[in-house]
Amino acid sequence: MSQDERAIRQLIATWLRASRDGDIEQVLALMAPDVLFLVPGQEPMLGRETFADGLRGLLRTQRIEADSEVEEVVVAGDMAYCRTRLSVRIVPAQGGAATQRAGHTLSILRKGADGAWRLTRDANLLMPVETPGV
């Protein structure tokens, strides 16, 4: 495994940990300012600050628990793509039923002049997971 692939896998692990811990600034540091997120049924979300606003709102009342299995990382110079299988649980801070979404993601990353990889485009194909007996 190349150093770049290890760095991208570490970025994903850091993202999951920072999301779980509510460390919004750490999550934002992992993405390019012009990041673009694609999710089913919604218009594209453009920009780090737009993402931050949504994350701040969510974390006021809920916490995030996520697991990711990296299935593929391809590096070509200062660009890379990564395909993962992702599962996210959103748990109300005051108790109550959690919601879960799972599926695949396809992310494009760019290596900056500082040598750090950052997320620049992300297609998140997560769908609700049905809870048995509900």
Rank of each mutant, 00 (worst) to 15 (best):
D78T: 12
L125I: 03
R17G: 07
G22M: 07
C82D: 12
I12C: 04
L46G: 13
V27Y: 01
E43A: 11
V35T: 10
R101Y: 08
D21H: 13
E25M: 06
W15V: 02
E25Q: 09
A29H: 11
E43C: 02
I24F: 00
A80D: 06
D67Y: 03
D122N: 12
A102N: 05
M45A: 12
L119I: 13
A80Q: 08
M31S: 08
V88E: 00
V70L: 04
G95R: 01
R110V: 11
E25G: 06
S19C: 14
I24P: 00
I90G: 03
G96F: 05
M45K: 05
M31D: 02
V35Q: 04
S2K: 05
T131G: 11
D34Y: 06
I8N: 01
A52E: 13
V75R: 01
V35R: 02
A80Y: 01
I12L: 09
V35K: 01
C82M: 13
S68P: 00
R17Q: 14
V73A: 00
R6Y: 13
S68M: 04
K111E: 05
R6N: 15
E49K: 11
V88G: 00
V88R: 00
R6A: 15
N124R: 00
L125V: 04
A13M: 08
P44H: 03
V74H: 07
G54A: 06
P44L: 08
I108L: 13
D78I: 10
D4W: 00
Q10W: 09
D21M: 14
P132H: 09
D21A: 14
P128S: 05
Q42M: 12
W117C: 02
M79R: 11
A52S: 11
A98L: 05
G57M: 01
Q42E: 14
R83H: 05
R56S: 07
I90D: 03
T131Q: 13
L125A: 09
G47T: 02
A97M: 15
L11F: 08
D122Y: 10
E130W: 14
E49P: 08
D122P: 06
G112K: 11
A97C: 14
D114N: 11
G133W: 13
I24S: 00
P128A: 04
G103Q: 00
E65A: 03
R118S: 10
Q100C: 08
Q3H: 15
T105W: 02
S68E: 08
D21Q: 15
L106Q: 07
R9A: 03
G96N: 13
L106S: 02
I90K: 01
E49C: 08
P44K: 02
R89S: 15
A98Y: 10
R20H: 14
A97S: 11
